[in-house]
Every structure is written in C-alpha cells, then in structure tokens.
C-alpha cells in the first residue's frame, strides 16, 4: 500500500517534470475549448437541442482526454520504460509487478480526471457550461469510459515493441479516431460514409455515453454503449494480462 502511494506520487511528479504528457492531457483540451468556444460561443441553439456549442463539446472533449490517455500516454510511457529497462526493475522487487499495475491504473485515472476537471472548470467559468444530468451517473459513466481506455492503453503497451512504434501507432490511431467519433466534429455533422467507420471506433461510444449522460438521457438510450465499453474492459485487460512483457 505504501509502495502504491509512493509510486502514484512519484509518477505524478515525473508527469509534471516531463512536460509533454502534461500538455496533452491537461492543456490541449482546454486550448481546444478556448479556440472553438471563442468562435462559436455557448448560445442555446436548436441545432444542439436547445443547448450551446460548449455544452455539447465539453462531454465530447472529455472523451478526447480519455482517448489521449489510452492511445498515447499509457502505451508510449510503458513501451519506453520497457525499452530502457525500467520495467525490468519491478520484477526484482517483492510484489513489484502487482504494485506497478495498480499504481498505473490509479495514476492514469487520476491524471485523466484532472484534465477533465480542468476542462469543466474552464467551461463553467468562461461559458456558463450547463449540465442537466445526474452527478453520480455521469461520474460512473466517465469511470467506465476511462477504465475501458486504460485497458486499451495496457493492451497497446503489451503489443508495442518500442517507444517509437507506440508513438507512431498510437498517434495514427488516435487522430483519425478523434475526428470520426464525434469528439471534435459533432456526429450529426459527419457524412454517412464516415459514420460507417465510426461504429468501429471505441471513442464513438465514449462520446455518445458522455453526451447522453451529461444531458440526463435515459439508461436505455445508451445501453449499447455500456455493452461495448464493458466488453472492451474485459477483452483488453485479459489480452494485456496474457501478453504483457516487463
């Protein structure tokens, strides 16, 4: 337990010192919101079902933060630690691999949540962000989405041979996914041909579930999202556990 606390703490310190991850998880989504918020504002419109641009974008951008953690932060950091022999060190420590795993999950959940909090606070202060859902439910939906993407992150980290390939593959999956899942461009603005691709992108389900939960949608409206995300958790953790190398 003591080791887990120390590890989460030291990972957080290193996260701040090694500025790249900090930028993508914390600042990048806020900058996006500031740019598009200043263009479109947050006036209620019929196009957004009586809500403003910022109101629908914040839950979608939360999906983007979650995706950055799963497709960039985790695979790149773990693959590079493996490449440099840092991971191997855990294998000589009593309880090392278990402690590392638990600490990673807590740490990446934590930084994703900090990024999310920063985004919500910015939206609230600058654009009078509206939220009509249930706080507990949105928290649970957010947690399920995050855990699903953490599991994808560990799966990618298991499969990637080097930090370089983790970087290349993570980026080339992440960026198209952010555009085709409704995270950046609203789903209803996407052409039908792209929507065929969206179905296969895990982020699509996160954006959908976050937006529905955000505006208090009924459970049955996002039950497919729940199935898909739960399935991802089980599948990815299982494969990651079987294939993970230290």
């Amino acid at each position: 337990m003591k080791a887990v606390c120390k590890m989460v703490f030291i990972k957080t310190k290193l996260f701040i010192r090694e500025i790249e991850g900090f930028f993508f998880t914390i600042f990048f989504p806020i900058i996006m919101l500031l740019i598009f918020g200043s263009i479109y504002g947050n006036k209620p419109s019929d196009y957004f079902g009586g809500f403003g641009f910022v109101d629908v974008s914040v839950p979608a951008y939360i999906g983007m933060i979650i995706a950055i953690t799963g497709f960039m932060s985790i695979p790149i950091s773990i693959a590079s630690d493996r490449e440099r022999g840092i991971l191997k060190r855990f294998r000589i420590l009593p309880g090392g691999s278990m402690i590392a795993m638990v600490s990673w999950i807590i740490f990446y959940y934590l930084i994703t949540t900090i990024g999310t909090a920063g985004l919500i606070i910015t939206g609230k202060l600058l654009y009078g962000l509206r939220f009509t859902g249930n706080t507990l439910i949105i928290f649970l939906l957010y947690s399920l989405s995050t855990v699903a993407f953490l599991s994808i992150g560990f799966l990618l980290a298991s499969l990637m041979r080097s930090a370089r390939s983790a970087n290349a593959i993570g980026m080339s999956l992440l960026f198209p996914m952010m555009f085709f899942s409704g995270a950046i461009i609203p789903m209803r603005s996407l052409p039908a041909s792209i929507k065929h691709i969206s179905v296969y992108l895990p982020l699509t389900y996160v954006v959908d579930i976050m937006q529905k939960g955000w505006f208090g949608g009924a459970l049955h409206s996002y039950r497919i999202d729940l199935f898909v995300l739960s399935g991802i958790v089980v599948f990815s953790f299982l494969i990651a556990k079987l294939t993970f190398r230290w």
Partner: peptide, 24 residues
C-alpha cells in the same frame, strides 16, 4: 540485484529513487 541493462526515469532524482524503492 543490480541488473546489467537497466535504468531509471531520466527526471527522477537520486533520493526519490531510493525513497521509492525502499517502500517495497
């Protein structure tokens, strides 16, 4: 154990490494 090919995170300080690994 000192491993032949091992390392620590670049931006970890010496005392932090000792403090961290001692907690195991």
């Amino acid at each position: 154990i000192q491993l032949q090919e091992s390392s620590l995170p670049q931006r970890m300080k010496v005392w932090e490494a000792l403090d961290f690994f001692s907690s195991f």
